[in-house]
């Protein structure tokens, strides 16, 4: 195993890549507001806009992890505030089930977050993003358990 010092070095130089799915009406607007308010936060997220967090197919989350994302953040309207009435509840239901699958596949809870951030909560967005970046930085890069590229030679005796 790597010694703690080199681990710290990796964590310091490691910049988590986070794919963020933001709903058009709340969290995307919060990110816009953060911009107009010149609120600074970590540049690690890449925002993909969907009309509603309910559009976020669990396949998108898996694809992001499979393609090298260290974290996935879904941002939607607060419960009761969904622009489409109840889309965010469907997101919540899927996220709760998906989280259990991800755990079994070795993906830590910190890497997959669902945040309710309304259009006016630019500050909350900042806090959520920064917090997620820090937590994932502490975890290190996502290494999917399956060694994909090569078959190991044979069973060791």
């Amino acid at each position: 195993m790597s010694n703690p010092e080199s681990l710290v070095a990796i964590q310091n130089s490691f910049e988590p890549k986070i794919v963020a799915f933001f709903c058009n009406w709340c969290t995307y607007l919060a990110a816009d507001l953060a911009g107009t308010s010149r609120i600074k936060y970590a540049p690690n997220i890449r925002v993909i806009r969907t009309m509603c967090s309910g559009r976020v197919d669990p396949q998108f989350v898996l694809e992001a992890f499979a393609r090298g994302a260290d974290g996935v953040l879904i941002g939607g309207c607060h419960p009761g505030d969904c622009h489409y009435q109840e889309g965010n509840y469907k997101t919540l239901r899927r996220v709760r089930m998906l989280r259990r699958v991800l755990r079994e596949m070795g993906i830590e809870d910190e890497r997959f977050r669902l945040e309710w951030i309304s259009a006016s909560e630019a500050e909350r967005l900042k806090v959520a993003v920064n917090d997620m970046v820090e937590k994932i930085r502490a975890l290190g890069p996502l290494r999917l358990e399956i060694k994909a590229e090569h078959f190991p030679e044979e069973v060791a005796a």
């Binding site: 197919d57 669990p58 396949q59 898996l62 694809e63 469907k90 239901r93 899927r94």
Partner: peptide, 16 residues
């Protein structure tokens, strides 16, 4: 469908 489990999960948990 690209990932069977994800889609099945999505459909089943959506109707909670």
């Amino acid at each position: 469908v690209r990932d069977y489990g994800a889609k099945a999960l999505s459909a089943i948990s959506s109707i909670i």
